[in-house]
């Protein structure tokens, strides 16, 4: 197990690809199925539109990946997206002429602050992350509904919404640019020493601490980054779909599902961030495919549930073969 860090440095790319192999197959299969059902899907414009729709979930998955791989959960991101959208709306309502960069900065700072609070609760008060972020979710959701009574006021100005639905250059949407930037940053982060300490912490917190990792700082960092990712997603969601008190409902489960689809082990210590983001794209591709086939919105979740279970099952099978684990070590780290 201690060889993990060394291995990752040595054969990072190969291992990363292998680790997520099932999700790339899944994504490819879904894209082929979409192409069969709707040949026009691969025109650049529509492909970019698909990427734009996926961007918030991909960003959430990147943030959630950092938390999961270091051994935790972040259940508060969905409610944080909602809070972000509502705060943006109320801010513009209160200060109609507010410059959009200031509001974006406010949201990012707020997201990071909530994430930091999560991190402090987990690292200092030693509350399990599942409960800490569940409590945070109740607090944030309650606060939003208490504040707006379920129907947020105000509207988002065009220049703010452009981030979520406008184009940066030519037909390249801002959302895709931001998504790429977040993805690149996360990959670089995971390749740096920080990434290796994350994996080590998730793999065995005690061993990592004894080896000199400052576990508390790691926790603060990952939850802050996850909160930041949720705030970025909130900016995109607000621009793309507008204001709602339900904006981010259920997003936390989708992000966790995406990360797990990407082959990351819940409980930490293994997984690739690129595969996690591919998992998010796969989920979005699945929704698109179901829509194309006219599966009613209702049955959509049934199919989603079946595919998620099947994919994780198959992923577990492949994973153990790739790593050639001795038969005595079963996957650890549940709940």
């Amino acid at each position: 197990m201690t060889a993990l860090a060394v291995d990752i440095r040595r054969e990072g790319l190969r291992r990363a690809l292998q680790a997520g192999a099932p999700v790339y197959l899944l994504l490819a299969a879904l894209l082929v199925a979409i192409a069969v059902a709707d040949p026009g899907f691969f025109e650049p414009d529509r492909l970019l539109a698909f990427a734009k729709r996926s961007a918030p979930l991909v960003i959430l998955a990147a943030g959630q990946y950092l938390v999961i791989v270091s051994g935790g959960y972040d259940l508060s991101v969905g409610s944080l997206v909602t809070v972000g959208v509502v705060v943006a709306a109320e801010t513009f309502n209160e200060f109609p002429g507010a410059p959009w960069p200031a509001v974006v900065a406010l949201l990012l700072a707020g997201g990071a602050l909530v994430g930091l609070a999560n991190g402090l609760i987990v690292a200092v008060l030693r509350v399990p992350s599942f409960i800490a972020t569940l409590g945070m979710m109740l607090i944030l959701e309650g606060a939003v509904f208490y504040w707006t009574q379920g129907s947020p006021h105000g509207s988002l100005p065009e220049d703010f919404r452009a981030l979520g639905r406008g184009n940066a250059v030519g037909s390249l949407p801002w959302a895709v640019v931001i998504c790429l930037a977040v993805g690149t940053a996360t990959v670089l982060l995971m390749r740096a020493a920080f990434g290796r300490t994350l994996l080590a912490t998730g793999d065995n917190e005690r061993a990592a601490a004894l080896a000199g990792v400052r576990v508390a700082r790691i926790r603060l960092a990952v939850f802050t980054l996850s909160g930041l990712a949720a705030a970025i997603a909130a900016v995109l969601v607000g621009g793309f779909s507008g204001i709602s008190a339900q904006a981010g409902r259920g997003d936390e489960f989708e992000a966790i599902t995406a990360v797990v689809l990407g082959g990351a082990a819940l409980g930490g210590g293994a997984g690739s961030v690129v595969a996690a983001m591919a998992g998010a794209f796969s989920l979005q591709a699945l929704f698109t495919l179901l829509n194309l086939h006219g599966v009613s919105g209702a049955l959509e979740s049934t199919v989603q549930g079946l595919i998620v279970i099947a994919a994780v099952w198959l992923g577990a099978v492949n994973w153990s073969r790739v790593r050639r684990r001795p038969a005595t070590t079963t996957p650890r780290g549940e709940a």
Binding site: I256, A298, T302, G305, I309, V312, A316
Partner: peptide, 27 residues
């Protein structure tokens, strides 16, 4: 069975089953 025999993490397994039930209800 999904958790033990298919080795799917309990969080994902029961979330998946929840989605399946939800689809049935909403349909």
């Amino acid at each position: 069975i999904v958790i033990t025999k298919l080795q799917v993490n309990a969080f994902i397994a029961t979330l998946g089953v929840a989605f399946i039930l939800r689809g049935y209800i909403e349909d």
